[in-house]
Nucleic acid binder design. Structure first.
Lengths: 147, 147
DNA sequence: TTGAACATGAAACATTGTTTCATTAATATA
DNA sequence: TATATTAATGAAACAATGTTTCATGTTCAA
């Protein structure tokens, strides 16, 4: 483990403590893998990075806990493609606006567009909004430039 | 089967023909069940309405075909909650803008808000958009008024 | 250091996704 | 209208994912 990775895990330890969660191996590992990844990752990709520390049931329960604590979030691309991403916490707690997600149908990568925030939708009278998820599919910058 | 249902199935037959699809029992049944439902339905709910005409594998393949032909669409609420809805075709083919979906976390119903269209998002340079899915969660009008 | 509270992993089962293949059904046209 | 071609069906079988129960192991506060 290099210095950057070690620092990452120390930050995660503190984050867990702040959220009132016990520091366990699976929580630290999964969180730090996601916090160091540019793209959101699937269970399979996380599993690969965890090596033999991975257990399916523990993974299942760990992501439940981490999602509830808003340390990570789940992005559903498709009914069979589920990805996980570290929730960046550097934004103002007050205007905690969610960002949109972009899925490239060519390279199949999912990108958190942190700078593109979800817009406000005027709902019919009587509806109360609590969450909004936006997923845009298309061709990403990288694939587009390669052509 | 009442008159309205029979009319529905006749329309579906024509729709399938227009799309170059064979008229089969499963396609007609599933399409007409969805076209007559106010809310999007889950596989289980569709199964219930189909009675003993239901077969899991046929369902799986039928929805694939119907989605591809844009006769129905799939809405993913959650990784374990998938719903299907009839695609209303009364909109102009040219500005085929998608509508948003609202999921009520209280009554767990999903609502196609046909009148609330997805907004245009300004993506970073180089990104090309083809589809956009918006799912808003909260409390629906009905549940809100009951309180 | 130790006990209460919680997390883990094994087992077992449910649900959903998916392919292969022999059989059956739909439809165009002869 | 009969039939040949083409496609859909349903059985079987398996993979992946979701989920609970329970005995055991771990964390952390006092």
């Amino acid at each position: 483990m290099n210095r950057k990775e070690k620092e990452g895990e120390m930050d995660i330890a503190e984050l867990l403590k702040n959220k009132g969660l016990k520091k366990t191996n699976a929580r630290v590992k999964i969180s730090s893998i996601l916090s160091q990844s540019v793209q959101p990752l699937s269970e399979k990709e996380i599993k690969k990075k965890m090596g033999n520390e991975y257990d399916r049931i523990t993974f299942y329960r760990t992501v439940q806990v981490l999602i509830k604590a808003d340390i990570i979030h789940r992005i559903i691309v498709d009914n069979t493609q589920i990805k996980y991403a570290f929730t960046k916490d550097d934004k103002n707690e007050l205007d905690k606006t969610e960002h949109i997600h972009f899925y490239c149908t060519q390279c199949h990568k999912l990108i958190c567009l942190e700078d593109v925030l979800v817009q406000y939708y005027e709902l019919p009278k009587g509806y109360i909004q609590s969450e909004c998820a936006v997923l845009i599919k298309g061709i990403c910058k990288n694939c587009n430039e390669k052509k």
